[in-house]
Amino acid sequence: MPTKRVAGVILAGGQARRMGGGDKCLLDLGNGHLLLDEITTRLTPQVDCLALNANGDPARFGRYGLPVLPDSLDDAGPLAGVLAAMRWARGQDCNAVVTVAGDTPFFPVDLVAHLLAGRERHRIAIAATDRVHPVFALWDTALIDVLAKALAQGLRRVVEFSALHGAVTVHFSHTGTLDPFFNINTKDDLEQVQRKLASKEQG
């Protein structure tokens, strides 16, 4: 069997506290189409294998048939999910893993290809538009032990770990009204995404 090159992991550990709690990735975007449906549709064709990073009962994601990876450390933020993603990717014979946020439905359909092209010899490549989007990144699984040690020592910020290991920023352009990395944090954000998807369907 040929060796896979890039795994994909959706980081879905965040709770929608400003929207009443629960899994943001399971928000309804309209007509029963969930946020996670949109994300998996975009990411699946870009990677060799796909998993979901989330805590709690994995049965709530059963309809997707994806491996569900709990955080490698409690209350450690997105970096714990990145470590779980790296470890899973290595087990799938992948030497790199791309992570995406579970609350961002419009990330580029060429995200992985663009990160791969822009990373050169760097072990971490991070997406950016007019600002950096730290969890939209390509990670070399050779960083597993380094990241595990950093977490054990209390490091929690994705940008801090990335900077320590010479991450390169890969820029994505956009012409639409919404940044492709627009994420849903509030009910207003959700309504904005619902309107955009509804207008696409009507067009």
Rank of each mutant, 00 (worst) to 15 (best):
A148R: 14
D57W: 10
A113K: 12
F61S: 03
N55F: 05
R131T: 13
L155T: 13
V98S: 02
G166C: 06
R119S: 14
F107C: 02
V112H: 02
V68M: 08
A167I: 02
G65F: 08
A163K: 12
L73I: 12
V132I: 14
D75L: 12
V132W: 02
C94N: 05
V132N: 00
R60D: 13
S72I: 10
V112C: 11
I144Q: 12
C94M: 14
A76W: 09
Y64W: 14
N55V: 06
A84Y: 02
V158H: 08
L115H: 06
V135D: 00
H171E: 12
P134W: 01
L116W: 11
V135C: 00
N95M: 07
G77E: 01
R119A: 11
V68N: 07
F106H: 07
V68E: 10
A80I: 10
G62N: 14
H122E: 12
L83W: 09
G166P: 03
L164P: 03
V170W: 03
K149A: 15
D71M: 06
V170T: 03
N53F: 03
V82M: 09
D145G: 03
V146A: 14
S162G: 10
E160Y: 07
F107Y: 07
H165G: 04
D130P: 01
C94L: 08
I124V: 15
E160T: 15
G81N: 06
V100F: 00
A125I: 03
I124L: 06
R156W: 05
L79E: 04
D57Q: 06
G56K: 11
G62P: 00
A113L: 12
L143W: 05
G62F: 05
R156G: 02
F136A: 00
T141A: 05
A150V: 09
V82F: 01
G102Y: 06
R63P: 06
D103T: 08
G102W: 08
A96C: 02
A54E: 04
T129P: 01
D110S: 09
V158T: 13
R123G: 12
L164K: 12
F161R: 02
A117S: 11
A113S: 13
A117Q: 14
E120N: 13
A167R: 04
